[in-house]
Simulated assay, not measured.
Amino acid sequence: MPIALITGGNRGLGRSCALALAEAGVDIVYTYRSDAGTTADEIAKLGRTAATLPLQVGALEDYDAFVASLRTTLRENWDRDDIDFLVNNAGVGLGGSIAQTTIEDFDTMMNVHFRGVYFLTQKLLPVIADGGRIINFSTGLARFTDGNNTYSAYASMKGAIEVFTRYLAQEVGPRGITANVVAPGPIGTEFGGGAMRDNAAVREAMGNRAALGRIGEPEDIGAVVATLLTNPVGWITGQRIEASGGTLL
Rank of each mutant, 00 (worst) to 15 (best):
N89S: 13
E204T: 14
G91N: 11
V202Y: 07
P186D: 12
R197W: 08
Q122F: 02
R166F: 05
M206W: 15
G185M: 06
W235V: 11
L249S: 10
P232N: 07
E76R: 10
W78V: 07
Y30P: 01
T230I: 12
Y167V: 07
A169R: 08
A160V: 12
K45F: 10
R71N: 09
F137G: 06
G25V: 11
P126N: 07
A211K: 04
S244M: 02
C17K: 00
E171D: 14
A22T: 10
V57A: 07
A183Y: 06
A18R: 00
V112N: 08
T165E: 03
R11L: 12
R133G: 05
T31L: 03
A24H: 11
F85M: 01
T145M: 06
E162C: 04
A68V: 08
E162H: 03
E190V: 11
G213W: 08
I3C: 11
G147L: 10
V225N: 03
A226Y: 07
G37C: 07
R75K: 14
I241N: 02
P126V: 09
G25I: 11
L124V: 00
T7M: 03
V127F: 00
G192P: 05
L248S: 10
G245A: 12
V57R: 14
G238C: 10
Q239Y: 00
D81K: 08
I83P: 01
R75Y: 10
V163G: 03
A40Q: 01
T150A: 12
T102E: 01
M109W: 07
A226H: 10
P54T: 09
S69T: 07
G238A: 09
A18C: 15
D62N: 12
A4C: 02
E242H: 07
A99V: 13
R15Y: 00
I98D: 00
V67Q: 13
A50C: 10
W78E: 00
T230P: 11
E104M: 06
E162P: 06
T31R: 09
M109E: 13
E242T: 15
